[in-house]
Design a protein around this nucleic acid. Structure first.
Lengths: 223, 223
DNA sequence: TTCAATATACTGGAAAACCAGTAGAAAAAA
DNA sequence: TTTTTTCTACTGGTTTTCCAGTATATTGAA
């Protein structure tokens, strides 16, 4: 926000447009966002960046109300970006933006403090609404995103019986095709211990052989 | 094409702008494309559609020079769309458009007849260049896409020792966590036969246990 | 500090997978 | 048709996994 004259008009909400920063490495998306937002004079796209570093540099000197943040930047990943931005400027409202919707990433982003999340197939109305909502301190998650999150929560609590760190590690090694003895050697523990972990893993995952174990591990992206 | 004198053809080209159709379900991408292309008066974006069906209906009555086709449409998948479009209008040049780049899909699209492929992080210049090239009957694949394709080719010929149909089937069953005996019962063959297949599979895949076998199968998307 | 969870380790026995070689029948390719 | 590939099946033996208990040391939370 540049120094605006302190007149009574600039105090009222309508005359103080929400400043928006776009961070996305896809020119066509950036242009699209600009075009979609240009109609609306309650919003003002300040500028845009195509990578994380430039964005952070910019935020050293300037501030904006809302950042539209693409999750897949070329240099810094979205989850990390949220943290870095909020470390600098805790009051900025970040709106995550992504084509696809991976629950785990969305969840991490929320944990790190995004105020909303939009899929790139959002309409112009949704977009403007989302920005307005988060600017006012509310959360905005589109119905699609909410559904995805709900699904992931129910799925997680259902088939993810919380593996311990050691178990996760051993699962990874099993999936690498290593035998019980190899794993034991590698971890400096008894093969019998590895056996026990394997057994506990299978019990937790509710399967009866290593094959299923690996398949599930892959599905759950534990590997 | 570079530095050509103003001949009759180059003048006539200018008076017949390339008509472009955009097919993408992301409003912000559509707007971005329109904006990026609006500067260039050798191109003319005729209209846009957000799904496959509407596009095909439109092509019943009208024709365009180039279609910018998003691979991930909500109703019909990109690979199929290429075929359907070319069945109707064989002369249309299709330019595939996608955020991510899965070699198998790009390959299939090419097989079905796309004239080029662009990633969504393409710049305005690349975009215009790609459209111009394919309109002239040339192919256009960005350097990134070419690299992806080259990688996938070398990878495929390296670690894909052509499984037979039966082997693929049995691999799938093994990955489902089924035991040799179960598989044998299911396929009405001897467990010994299943053993043999399993052995051949492991030999072909150059691994020494079922775990690695499954991991490879997953990686190769055989499952 | 106490208690619960986790990681460690063992016994012993059953089941399944793994290895190597051979070979006939059926199907596909030449 | 002939040849090759694929699918089928077997013998015999080794290794690994799987299952059901038990048990102790360590770690982290209450």
């Amino acid at each position: 926000m540049k120094a605006q004259p302190l007149t009574y008009t600039s105090i009222s909400m309508q005359h103080r447009p929400i400043s928006v920063l776009i961070v996305d490495d896809h020119p066509m998306v950036v242009e699209g966002l600009k075009t979609l937002l240009s109609d609306n004079h309650t919003l003002m796209v300040k500028t845009h960046f195509t990578n994380g570093k430039d964005t952070l540099d910019f935020l050293e000197k300037e501030i904006v109300d809302v950042i539209l943040l693409d999750v897949n930047l070329p240099d810094i990943n979205g989850v990390e970006m949220v943290k870095l931005i909020l470390d600098k400027r805790a009051t900025i409202k970040i709106l995550g933006l992504s084509t696809y919707s991976e629950p785990s990433i969305i969840n991490q982003m929320i944990k790190n403090g995004v105020k909303g999340y939009l899929l790139k197939n959002a309409t112009s109305d949704e977009l403007v609404n989302a920005i307005t909502q988060v600017d006012q301190g509310n959360f905005y998650f589109g119905s699609e995103v909410q559904k995805i999150l709900a699904d992931s929560v129910s799925q997680e609590s259902k088939d993810s019986p919380k593996l311990t760190r050691r178990e996760t590690h051993i699962l990874r090694l099993i999936a690498d095709g290593k035998t019980t003895n190899t794993i034991a050697e590698e971890l400096f523990i008894s093969p019998l211990t590895v056996e026990t972990h394997r057994r506990n893993l299978m019990q937790k995952m509710e399967v009866s052989n290593a094959a299923s174990l690996i398949k599930i591990a892959v599905e759950k992206k534990l590997i």
